[in-house]
């Protein structure tokens, strides 16, 4: 990547998101300027996943914008990989493990090009990296939760992106899979990729992430993990519960309904 040193890889500028009329994320300013393992930490309902979805244009943004490599997403889509939460898809869907990983290549293949030998080899290599090569032909519903999450990880690898956004990749995952997933994420970081991970477990967050952002309906703090995860910041994130913001959000929603 030959980017100017001043150009952030990802920049959230004054991002505000609302579901319906109710704002759930207020005025987030956040710039990440170097490859690292970046954790987005906060309580349930804090808007962590929403932050990722807003960056990807999956939820409408009320105000502000997000840039990747200084550009709007539409111009650099292929360089940004996204892994949604595992529960968001139907795992009884009639596809094999290999089929799902191959989907990672569909975005750049376009309408008519079929995945060829290169794509198949790549999918296989990605499955090997997450330790699932021997399950390639299996229907995805017949995997454990941890294996399913690793299939998603392999699909993201097959996209060969420069920035990865993971939504709760460790949720409902056994310890062995967690270690495997973390090892792959660390490999990505070491290969110069930026890896952003929404995560809810504070204990592991402190040891896994180079940098973190604490989020609770607004950005509480961001920076190197040791500097951010202070008792004071955690207190502001978890104990404060942003009650004022929540109430304000409800008020805005109510207003909209009666007017």
């Amino acid at each position: 990547m030959t980017l100017a040193a001043s150009m952030p890889l990802v920049e959230f500028h004054d991002v505000t998101v609302a579901y319906g009329r109710r704002p759930v994320l207020w005025h987030v300013d956040l710039a990440i300027d170097r490859p690292c393992l970046f954790g987005v930490i906060g309580p349930n309902g804090a808007g962590k996943s929403t932050l990722l979805k807003a960056a990807l244009g999956l939820v409408p943004v009320v105000g502000g914008y997000t840039r990747f490599f200084g550009e709007p997403l539409a111009r650099v889509r292929g360089r940004v990989g996204y892994v949604p939460q595992r529960e968001t898809v139907d795992w009884d869907f009639p596809v094999s493990v290999h089929d799902v990983v191959l989907m990672g290549t569909y975005g750049r293949l376009g309408w008519f090009r079929r995945p060829g030998g290169r794509e198949r080899d790549l999918a296989h290599a990605c499955l090997e990296r997450v330790g699932l090569a021997d399950l390639a032909g299996r229907q995805i519903g017949r995997l454990s939760g941890g294996q399913q999450q690793r299939v998603f990880l392999a699909r993201a690898l097959a996209q060969e992106a420069d920035i990865y956004l993971f939504d709760e990749p460790m949720a409902g995952v056994d310890v062995r899979s967690q270690e495997r997933i973390f090892a792959v994420l660390a490999e990505l970081r070491d290969a110069g990729r930026l890896v952003i991970v929404v995560h809810h477990d504070l204990r592991t967050a402190a040891e896994w992430f180079d940098r973190v952002a604490l989020v609770d309906m607004r950005l509480v703090a961001a920076g190197p993990t040791a500097e951010v995860l202070t008792p004071e910041n955690l207190d502001r994130t978890y104990a404060g519960r942003a009650e004022l913001l929540e109430e304000l959000g409800r008020a805005v929603a109510e207003r909209g309904r009666t007017s």
């Binding site: 940004v80 892994v83 869907f93 596809v95 799902v100 008519f112 699909r155």
Partner: peptide, 22 residues
């Protein structure tokens, strides 16, 4: 047939498909 792979990706995981530019 022309949209088959995208149909399947969209059916399985619409959010990831959208993020991938489909």
């Amino acid at each position: 047939a022309a949209s088959w792979r995208w149909q399947v990706f969209t059916a399985f995981d619409p959010a990831a498909a959208r993020a991938a530019g489909i």
